[in-house]
Design a protein around this nucleic acid. Structure first.
Length: 804
DNA sequence: AGCACGCCGACT
DNA sequence: GTCGGCGTGCTC
């Protein structure tokens, strides 16, 4: 029998293994592994999308088989590498293979399902049902949109064959099509036509002239109109006269409007050269080594990446480079594009889904040798990879927060092993896990200790805000920082200020009864936003009007506590009335391209002060910035997460690096209520190595990564007691199946107990070596799958980044 | 996910 | 008796 194994688009544990289908004769020569197909699945003629995992033209199957309905692709959507990776990834992340496959593909390749209801004979159905159709013979419908008594009738009619339900699998993956034209007469014929033409037919003459000179070429109609100044109406008459044919042609959408200036390799210093040599040697020898490139801000990591990529390309290989959030680093994008030109494909969140699909197809068709992108770009269908680079490898955005919960670093390592090529992890402040592996010799450490041009690091001063409050009562701006701001404004130099909290005030409290306004859906206080004049929840997006009296006691003594970027902007504008202030946070950058606009404006010196949340800390490089102020360094320090020190150190180090990159000396102020905390003290000295050692000893004492591995198990339900009870059940299973060396935290409510109207309870397992662990977790998944139908979800997050 | 089947309480 | 509620199990 001619059989295909198909992974069906039904994300459950029971359907995680492939199903076998018959291949109909007419598809036999076209079907390939990794193609998307439409298959019937279950009763009632339901149709769904699937992926071909295996083909056996001479197979056997014990039992009934259905036939594949049709193909959704002309070519494989997934090559063998990605197909086998999806299997590994499903296991590793405790998720379904189909979910892994669909995250690897551009979102438009995830089919939409629709149901169509068709009347067989209008005489058969009653008026109530007939009225749904509004005169037509068929309608698209969703079960949840239809009233239950009518639905019951529909089900009855369907049983009696009076109505038919047709399932549709709608592929959204559509290439953009444009009109193209091609001459169908030769140059001589065109010359004859030109001779016959009336003298005043200027446009037709132009068209014939074009045909004489471009006889064999296909050209888009748009180009013919724009570049040759021939109107569309003329092209149409040319077609009617039989000179040209017109047809639809696929075209890639072009997301890069502006031209990028080419740039050329820079001269490397000794450390950079050594790094490039070591990496290229691994590429040449096809060794899947992992390099940790540790270099302070401004040490020229990017140039190392680019030259290592160059070497891979010279070897006939391709390269993959990952960055945290590309829209934040337009400077980086320009540099890569400028170096490698149109061999580069970009995959980032600023592209529309159509543009992403086109970039994906360019890569899949082998038209791009270098791919630059964010997390999901790790799945780019490149062949023959010679190097994978992860810039700022410590960034949390490399880990996907929802299923499949993969870490880009793990996927990258898998691909490097597959392609026998090196993985380069670059950072000024590597994650402790990576740095520890480098110490153990699992990764090879390459360091760039010197800043290019021997620029000195900026001076960092810590300001104790406890003292400041005692003397001035101001908790936002210390005297010293304010003086420095004024000084820079006078010298016409620029300033970057970071406050890691958006909105106006973080909460409102009634001074009579102490009541704090909370989100009705989440266990979190609402933040005041002055621009929209609303109270907003930063987790679920809930908004409500600003209260003028307390909802609890009716008192009008309401006060706003805590400071956000909006309030600081207002306050700062009062303190320095002539300064031009730009604010950059989630609220001002929501629109597409808003990031770039703000950064460009600041880069052109159309503003003096850039005030923003942590998004300003990353990758931007403005030579005229000589002062950086961190208004409150404690926001990230106070979080209930063992990584809060590491995050704070990273953030402070990164934002400090924004000061004084050119010939001008930089100065950094860190305002804090914890001036003696080691994360802040060591960020002041920009001493990563010492921080690494100090933090490692803390992790050692508290049994946290990198000394222990962790897994987070979460249960969520609209009913708090059910979620909690489930976690206690799971705790019992874990205790029975794991060794007594595994440490368990919980069950406990998650630090945001209630989120979007669901309650969350969690257990964290810390372990060193638990051979039974994955079997045990799979048992839990299988055991609790039926609960998911009732809305009780159990989630497993291996190596979670977020402990809250 | 979405469907069918089967078991139970409430109703003509 | 039967209708329709929901819980459970299966889909090549």
């Amino acid at each position: 029998m001619n059989l295909a194994k198909v992974i069906v688009d039904v994300p459950t544990m029971q359907t995680n293994d492939p199903y076998t289908y018959l291949i109909p004769d007419e598809l036999s020569d076209k079907i390939q592994n990794g193609m998307r197909v439409i298959v019937p699945f279950g009763a009632g003629g339901r149709k769904i999308q699937g992926i071909v995992a295996d083909i056996d033209h001479n197979g056997d199957f014990d039992g009934e088989l259905k036939e594949i309905d049709g193909l959704l692709d002309l070519d494989s959507a997934l090559n063998d590498e990605l197909l086998s990776m999806s299997k590994w990834m499903a296991k590793k992340t405790y998720s379904f293979q189909i979910s892994c496959i669909l995250t690897m593909l551009p979102s438009v390749m995830r089919a939409k399902y629709e149901k169509e209801l068709i009347i067989n004979d209008k005489q058969d159905v009653d008026d109530e049902v007939l009225s749904l159709f509004d005169g037509a013979n068929s309608i698209d419908f969703k079960v949840e949109d239809i009233d239950s008594t009518i639905l019951r009738k529909i089900i009855q009619y369907r049983k009696e064959d009076k109505l038919t339900v047709r399932y549709k699998v709608n592929d959204k993956a559509k290439a953009k099509k444009v009109y193209a034209v091609k001459p169908i007469i030769n140059s001589n014929q065109a010359q004859d036509e030109l001779d016959k033409l009336r003298k005043n037919s200027k446009n037709l003459a132009k068209l014939l002239d074009y045909i004489i000179n471009n006889n064999e070429v296909t050209i888009t109609q748009r180009k013919l109109v724009n570049d040759f100044n021939i109107p569309e109406s003329t092209i149409k008459s040319g077609i009617e006269k039989g000179w040209l044919t017109r047809f639809w042609q696929e075209e890639y959408r072009n997301p890069y409007e502006q031209e990028v200036k080419p740039n050329y390799p820079l001269k490397l210093n000794g450390d950079q050269q050594k790094a490039v040599d070591s990496i290229s040697e691994a590429t040449n020898n096809e060794q899947s080594d992992v390099f940790l490139l540790e270099g302070v801000t401004g040490s020229g990591k990017t140039e190392v990446y680019l030259q290592a990529i160059q070497k891979a390309l010279e070897n006939g290989k391709t390269a993959l480079m990952l960055v945290p959030e590309i829209s934040l680093t337009p400077q980086m994008v320009k540099r890569v594009k400028g170096r490698f030109g149109n061999k580069v494909a970009m995959l980032h969140s600023g592209l529309s889904s159509g543009e992403k699909y086109d970039e994906w197809r360019r890569i899949n068709n082998g038209e791009a040798d270098v791919v630059v992108g964010v997390r999901s770009a790790i799945f780019a269908p490149l062949n023959n990879i010679g190097i994978i680079i992860m810039d700022e490898e410590h960034e949390a955005s490399y880990k996907q927060d929802d299923a499949p919960r993969y870490h880009t670093r793990d996927v990258a390592k898998w691909r490097c092993d597959y392609h026998n090529c090196p993985l380069v992890l670059g950072s000024a402040t590597p994650s402790l896990e990576s740095r520890a592996r480098a110490t153990k010799g699992v990764y090879k450490l390459l360091s760039l200790p010197k800043r290019i041009n021997n620029q000195s690091l900026p001076e960092v001063r810590i300001i104790d805000m406890k003292e400041e409050i005692k003397t001035t009562g101001d908790e936002d701006f210390s005297q010293e920082l304010l003086a420095a701001i004024n000084n820079r404004l006078q010298k016409n130099e620029q300033i970057v200020l970071m406050l890691n909290r958006r909105g106006y005030s973080s909460f409102v409290m009634c001074r009579s009864c102490g009541f704090v306004l909370h989100c009705p859906n989440c266990d979190i206080s609402l933040t005041l936003h002055m621009d929209s004049r609303t109270m907003k929840c930063h987790y679920c997006g809930h908004e409500e009007p600003i209260p003028n009296k307390c909802k609890n006691c009716g008192s009008k003594k309401i006060r706003y506590y805590g400071t956000g970027t909006q309030k600081v902007q207002e306050k700062l504008q009062n303190l320095v009335p002539n300064a031009r202030i730009l604010r950059m946070d989630v609220d001002t950058t929501r629109r597409k391209g808003a990031h770039e606009k703000i950064l460009q404006k600041f880069g052109n010196h159309d503003a003096d002060i850039l005030l923003g949340t942590q998004m300003i800390a990353k990758g931007l490089d403005f030579p005229n910035v000589t002062l950086v102020g961190v208004l409150n360094a404690d926001t990230s320090l106070d979080l209930p997460d063992f990584r809060s020190s590491e995050r704070t150190f990273n953030l402070l180090t990164q934002v400090s690096g924004r000061a004084g990159r050119a010939d001008k000396e930089g100065l950094v102020y860190i305002q804090t209520f914890n001036p003696d905390h080691y994360a802040i003290r060591l960020a002041q000295k920009q001493d990563y190595e010492l921080f690494y050692r100090k933090e490692m000893s803390v992790r050692h004492q508290t049994n946290y990564p990198p000394y222990f591995f962790t897994v987070k198990i979460t249960a969520s339900d609209v009913n708090e007691a059910k979620a909690a009870a489930k976690m206690f059940e799971i705790q019992k299973i874990l205790k029975a199946k794991l060794s007594d060396q595994a440490l368990m935290l919980g069950p406990s409510p998650s630090s945001i107990l209630k989120l979007k109207n669901k309650y969350y309870y969690q257990i964290i397992i810390k372990y060193k070596n638990e051979p039974n662990l994955s079997e045990c977790l799979n048992y839990i998944l299988n055991h609790y799958q039926k609960d998911a139908q009732k809305g009780l979800y159990v989630n497993i997050d291996p190596d979670p980044l977020n402990f809250m």
